[in-house]
Protein backbone atom coordinates (compact mmCIF):
# COMPACT_ATOMS: atom_id res chain seq x y z
CA UNK A 1 0.00 0.00 0.00
CA UNK A 2 1.23 3.49 -0.75
CA UNK A 3 1.29 6.22 1.87
CA UNK A 4 -1.59 8.08 0.26
CA UNK A 5 -3.99 5.16 0.54
CA UNK A 6 -3.32 4.87 4.26
CA UNK A 7 -4.70 8.34 4.92
CA UNK A 8 -8.36 8.09 5.83
CA UNK A 9 -10.50 9.64 3.08
CA UNK A 10 -12.25 12.90 3.98
CA UNK A 11 -15.68 12.35 5.47
CA UNK A 12 -17.17 14.18 2.52
CA UNK A 13 -15.49 15.07 -0.75
CA UNK A 14 -17.60 16.95 -3.30
CA UNK A 15 -15.95 17.33 -6.70
CA UNK A 16 -17.25 19.63 -9.39
CA UNK A 17 -20.87 18.74 -8.63
CA UNK A 18 -23.47 19.99 -11.13
CA UNK A 19 -27.23 19.79 -10.57
CA UNK A 20 -29.81 20.92 -13.11
CA UNK A 21 -33.59 20.70 -13.25
CA UNK A 22 -34.31 20.55 -16.95
CA UNK A 23 -32.55 23.53 -18.47
CA UNK A 24 -32.24 25.30 -15.13
CA UNK A 25 -28.79 24.91 -13.58
CA UNK A 26 -29.11 24.96 -9.78
CA UNK A 27 -25.56 23.94 -8.89
CA UNK A 28 -22.82 24.67 -11.40
CA UNK A 29 -19.70 22.75 -10.45
CA UNK A 30 -19.20 22.93 -6.71
CA UNK A 31 -16.22 21.40 -4.88
CA UNK A 32 -15.44 21.21 -1.18
CA UNK A 33 -14.26 18.80 1.48
CA UNK A 34 -15.26 18.14 5.07
CA UNK A 35 -12.94 16.54 7.58
CA UNK A 36 -13.65 14.40 10.60
CA UNK A 37 -15.22 16.30 13.49
CA UNK A 38 -15.78 19.43 11.43
CA UNK A 39 -18.89 21.61 11.25
CA UNK A 40 -19.09 23.07 7.77
CA UNK A 41 -21.65 25.75 6.92
CA UNK A 42 -23.06 26.33 3.45
CA UNK A 43 -24.10 29.96 3.50
CA UNK A 44 -26.24 31.44 0.77
CA UNK A 45 -29.35 33.48 -0.03
CA UNK A 46 -32.62 31.79 -1.03
CA UNK A 47 -32.32 29.87 -4.28
CA UNK A 48 -28.50 29.83 -4.13
CA UNK A 49 -28.41 26.06 -4.58
CA UNK A 50 -27.85 24.89 -0.98
CA UNK A 51 -30.68 22.36 -0.87
CA UNK A 52 -29.85 21.13 -4.38
CA UNK A 53 -26.24 20.49 -3.34
CA UNK A 54 -27.43 18.47 -0.35
CA UNK A 55 -30.02 16.65 -2.48
CA UNK A 56 -27.29 15.44 -4.82
CA UNK A 57 -25.21 14.16 -1.89
CA UNK A 58 -28.31 12.49 -0.41
CA UNK A 59 -29.15 10.79 -3.69
CA UNK A 60 -32.48 12.60 -4.10
CA UNK A 61 -31.39 14.13 -7.40
CA UNK A 62 -28.90 12.68 -9.82
CA UNK A 63 -26.01 15.07 -10.47
CA UNK A 64 -25.49 16.00 -14.12
CA UNK A 65 -21.76 15.63 -13.58
CA UNK A 66 -19.17 15.57 -10.84
CA UNK A 67 -19.35 13.32 -7.81
CA UNK A 68 -19.55 13.17 -4.08
CA UNK A 69 -17.80 10.64 -1.88
CA UNK A 70 -18.79 9.90 1.69
CA UNK A 71 -15.90 8.29 3.52
CA UNK A 72 -14.55 7.38 0.08
CA UNK A 73 -17.84 5.83 -1.10
CA UNK A 74 -19.34 7.21 -4.29
CA UNK A 75 -22.92 8.30 -3.60
CA UNK A 76 -24.10 7.47 -7.13
CA UNK A 77 -22.34 4.11 -7.55
CA UNK A 78 -23.03 2.81 -4.04
CA UNK A 79 -26.07 4.78 -2.88
CA UNK A 80 -27.22 2.46 -0.10
CA UNK A 81 -23.77 2.15 1.48
CA UNK A 82 -23.36 5.92 1.27
CA UNK A 83 -26.78 6.55 2.79
CA UNK A 84 -26.02 4.17 5.66
CA UNK A 85 -23.24 6.57 6.72
CA UNK A 86 -25.38 9.64 6.37
CA UNK A 87 -27.81 11.24 8.81
CA UNK A 88 -30.22 13.65 7.20
CA UNK A 89 -32.54 16.42 8.27
CA UNK A 90 -34.34 17.72 5.21
CA UNK A 91 -35.46 21.32 4.87
CA UNK A 92 -39.07 20.35 4.35
CA UNK A 93 -39.38 16.78 5.43
CA UNK A 94 -42.23 15.21 7.15
CA UNK A 95 -42.92 11.98 8.92
CA UNK A 96 -46.10 9.97 8.44
CA UNK A 97 -48.84 11.98 10.17
CA UNK A 98 -50.52 8.81 11.46
CA UNK A 99 -47.48 7.59 13.43
CA UNK A 100 -46.65 8.49 17.01
CA UNK A 101 -43.22 9.80 17.98
CA UNK A 102 -42.32 6.38 19.34
CA UNK A 103 -43.45 4.62 16.16
CA UNK A 104 -41.43 7.05 14.04
CA UNK A 105 -38.34 6.32 16.13
CA UNK A 106 -38.87 2.56 15.71
CA UNK A 107 -39.41 2.87 11.97
CA UNK A 108 -36.27 4.87 11.32
CA UNK A 109 -34.16 2.79 13.68
CA UNK A 110 -35.23 -0.27 11.70
CA UNK A 111 -34.50 1.39 8.36
CA UNK A 112 -30.94 2.05 9.54
CA UNK A 113 -30.56 -1.45 10.94
CA UNK A 114 -30.64 -0.39 14.60
CA UNK A 115 -32.53 -2.45 17.18
CA UNK A 116 -34.09 -0.12 19.73
CA UNK A 117 -35.62 -1.39 22.95
CA UNK A 118 -38.45 0.42 24.66
CA UNK A 119 -35.98 1.47 27.40
CA UNK A 120 -33.53 2.88 24.87
CA UNK A 121 -36.26 4.93 23.21
CA UNK A 122 -37.42 6.19 26.60
CA UNK A 123 -33.88 7.17 27.53
CA UNK A 124 -33.22 9.06 24.29
CA UNK A 125 -36.56 10.80 24.51
CA UNK A 126 -35.65 11.95 28.01
CA UNK A 127 -32.37 13.41 26.81
CA UNK A 128 -34.14 15.39 24.09
CA UNK A 129 -36.95 16.37 26.44
CA UNK A 130 -39.69 14.53 24.57
CA UNK A 131 -40.40 11.78 27.11
CA UNK A 132 -43.83 13.21 27.84
CA UNK A 133 -44.72 13.27 24.12
CA UNK A 134 -44.06 9.63 23.15
CA UNK A 135 -47.65 8.99 22.14
CA UNK A 136 -48.09 12.27 20.28
CA UNK A 137 -47.99 12.76 16.53
CA UNK A 138 -45.13 14.73 14.98
CA UNK A 139 -47.48 17.55 13.93
CA UNK A 140 -48.64 17.98 17.53
CA UNK A 141 -45.14 18.96 18.67
CA UNK A 142 -43.92 22.57 18.92
CA UNK A 143 -41.41 23.83 16.35
CA UNK A 144 -38.48 23.34 18.71
CA UNK A 145 -39.64 19.84 19.65
CA UNK A 146 -40.03 18.95 15.97
CA UNK A 147 -36.46 20.06 15.22
CA UNK A 148 -35.14 18.06 18.18
CA UNK A 149 -37.02 15.00 17.03
CA UNK A 150 -35.79 15.43 13.44
CA UNK A 151 -32.20 15.77 14.69
CA UNK A 152 -32.62 12.70 16.89
CA UNK A 153 -33.88 10.66 13.94
CA UNK A 154 -30.99 11.97 11.83
CA UNK A 155 -28.49 10.68 14.41
CA UNK A 156 -30.31 7.46 15.38
CA UNK A 157 -27.68 5.27 13.66
CA UNK A 158 -24.69 7.36 14.81
CA UNK A 159 -23.75 8.41 11.29
CA UNK A 160 -20.36 9.63 10.20
CA UNK A 161 -21.80 12.69 8.51
CA UNK A 162 -24.88 14.77 9.31
CA UNK A 163 -26.58 16.89 6.65
CA UNK A 164 -28.82 19.53 8.21
CA UNK A 165 -30.77 21.81 5.88
CA UNK A 166 -31.59 25.08 7.65
CA UNK A 167 -31.96 23.29 10.99
CA UNK A 168 -32.78 26.40 13.01
CA UNK A 169 -35.14 28.12 10.57
CA UNK A 170 -38.20 29.42 12.38
CA UNK A 171 -36.96 28.67 15.91
CA UNK A 172 -37.05 31.11 18.82
CA UNK A 173 -33.65 32.19 20.22
CA UNK A 174 -33.80 29.74 23.13
CA UNK A 175 -34.53 26.73 20.92
CA UNK A 176 -31.94 27.91 18.43
CA UNK A 177 -29.19 28.01 21.03
CA UNK A 178 -30.26 24.67 22.47
CA UNK A 179 -30.02 23.18 18.97
CA UNK A 180 -26.56 24.69 18.41
CA UNK A 181 -25.51 22.94 21.58
CA UNK A 182 -26.86 19.62 20.31
CA UNK A 183 -25.08 20.10 17.00
CA UNK A 184 -21.84 20.74 18.88
CA UNK A 185 -22.45 17.65 20.99
CA UNK A 186 -22.80 15.63 17.79
CA UNK A 187 -19.42 16.92 16.68
CA UNK A 188 -18.02 16.08 20.11
CA UNK A 189 -19.14 12.50 19.48
CA UNK A 190 -16.89 12.44 16.40
CA UNK A 191 -19.43 13.26 13.70
CA UNK A 192 -18.93 15.74 10.91
CA UNK A 193 -21.73 18.13 10.09
CA UNK A 194 -22.71 19.94 6.92
CA UNK A 195 -25.40 22.51 7.61
CA UNK A 196 -26.98 25.21 5.51
CA UNK A 197 -28.07 28.54 6.87
CA UNK A 198 -28.54 32.13 5.95
CA UNK A 199 -27.83 33.28 9.46
CA UNK A 200 -24.38 34.86 9.86
CA UNK A 201 -24.76 34.58 13.61
CA UNK A 202 -25.26 30.84 13.29
CA UNK A 203 -22.32 30.47 10.94
CA UNK A 204 -20.05 32.29 13.37
CA UNK A 205 -21.43 30.56 16.45
CA UNK A 206 -21.16 26.93 15.34
CA UNK A 207 -19.28 26.53 12.06
CA UNK A 208 -15.60 25.71 11.94
CA UNK A 209 -15.54 26.59 8.25
CA UNK A 210 -18.07 28.12 5.92
CA UNK A 211 -18.51 28.45 2.18
CA UNK A 212 -20.58 31.22 0.62
CA UNK A 213 -22.65 29.94 -2.30
CA UNK A 214 -24.70 31.93 -4.79
CA UNK A 215 -26.22 31.13 -8.19
CA UNK A 216 -24.94 27.58 -7.81
CA UNK A 217 -21.28 28.54 -7.38
CA UNK A 218 -19.03 28.69 -4.31
CA UNK A 219 -17.72 32.25 -3.98
CA UNK A 220 -15.33 31.72 -1.09
CA UNK A 221 -14.43 29.16 1.59
CA UNK A 222 -12.68 29.43 4.96
CA UNK A 223 -13.17 29.97 8.66
CA UNK A 224 -15.45 32.92 9.45
CA UNK A 225 -12.42 34.91 10.60
CA UNK A 226 -10.48 34.03 7.44
CA UNK A 227 -13.34 35.17 5.22
CA UNK A 228 -13.47 38.56 6.94
CA UNK A 229 -9.70 38.89 6.69
CA UNK A 230 -9.65 37.84 3.03
CA UNK A 231 -12.45 40.14 1.83
CA UNK A 232 -12.22 43.12 4.17
CA UNK A 233 -10.60 45.32 1.51
CA UNK A 234 -12.94 44.25 -1.32
CA UNK A 235 -14.69 47.47 -2.50
CA UNK A 236 -18.05 45.62 -2.72
CA UNK A 237 -17.68 44.66 0.93
CA UNK A 238 -16.50 48.08 2.07
CA UNK A 239 -19.45 49.70 0.34
CA UNK A 240 -21.97 47.78 2.47
CA UNK A 241 -20.01 47.82 5.75
CA UNK A 242 -21.02 50.05 8.64
CA UNK A 243 -17.87 50.24 10.74
CA UNK A 244 -15.61 47.19 11.13
CA UNK A 245 -16.24 44.54 8.48
CA UNK A 246 -18.45 41.67 9.66
CA UNK A 247 -19.19 38.27 8.10
CA UNK A 248 -22.54 39.66 7.03
CA UNK A 249 -20.80 42.50 5.18
CA UNK A 250 -18.70 39.93 3.34
CA UNK A 251 -21.83 37.91 2.55
CA UNK A 252 -23.82 40.90 1.24
CA UNK A 253 -20.78 42.30 -0.56
CA UNK A 254 -20.18 39.04 -2.42
CA UNK A 255 -23.79 38.03 -3.10
CA UNK A 256 -25.23 41.51 -3.80
CA UNK A 257 -27.98 43.47 -2.09
CA UNK A 258 -30.99 42.54 -4.18
CA UNK A 259 -33.71 40.60 -2.41
CA UNK A 260 -34.28 36.92 -3.38
CA UNK A 261 -37.50 35.04 -2.90
Amino acid sequence: MSDASQLPPPVLAVDNLRVAYGARVAVGGVSFRIDRGEIFGLLGPNGAGKTSTLSAIEGLVKPKSGRSLIDGIDTVQHPLEAKARLGVQLQSSSFQAELSIEQIAKLYAGLYGVHLSREQIDASMRTIGLDAELGKRFKQLSGGQQQRMALYIATIHEPLLLLLDEPTAGLDPQSRRALWQRIEQARGAGRSILLTTHSMEEAQAVCDRVAIIDHGALLTTGTPAELIEKHKDDPRVLEVAHGPVTLEDVFIGLTGSEIRD
Binding site: S5, D71, G72, I73, D74, Q77, H78, L80, E81, A84, R85, Q96, L99, Q103, K106, L107, A109, G110, L111, Y112, G113, V114, H115, H157
Partner: peptide
Protein backbone atom coordinates in the same frame (compact mmCIF):
# COMPACT_ATOMS: atom_id res chain seq x y z
CA UNK B 1 -10.62 2.04 -4.53
CA UNK B 2 -13.89 0.99 -3.09
CA UNK B 3 -13.83 0.16 0.55
CA UNK B 4 -14.18 -3.63 0.76
CA UNK B 5 -16.12 -3.22 3.99
CA UNK B 6 -18.79 -1.14 2.32
CA UNK B 7 -21.11 -4.13 1.93
CA UNK B 8 -21.01 -4.96 5.59
CA UNK B 9 -22.15 -1.50 6.61
CA UNK B 10 -25.38 -1.82 4.68
CA UNK B 11 -28.21 -2.38 7.16
CA UNK B 12 -29.98 -5.75 7.02
CA UNK B 13 -32.92 -5.68 4.62
CA UNK B 14 -35.13 -7.91 6.75
CA UNK B 15 -35.27 -5.53 9.69
CA UNK B 16 -35.88 -2.57 7.36
CA UNK B 17 -38.73 -4.40 5.60
CA UNK B 18 -40.37 -5.42 8.88
CA UNK B 19 -40.16 -1.86 10.17
CA UNK B 20 -41.71 -0.50 6.99
CA UNK B 21 -44.49 -3.09 6.97
CA UNK B 22 -45.37 -2.34 10.57
CA UNK B 23 -45.42 1.42 9.97
Amino acid sequence: MIDPQSDTVRPPLGLAMRSLLRA
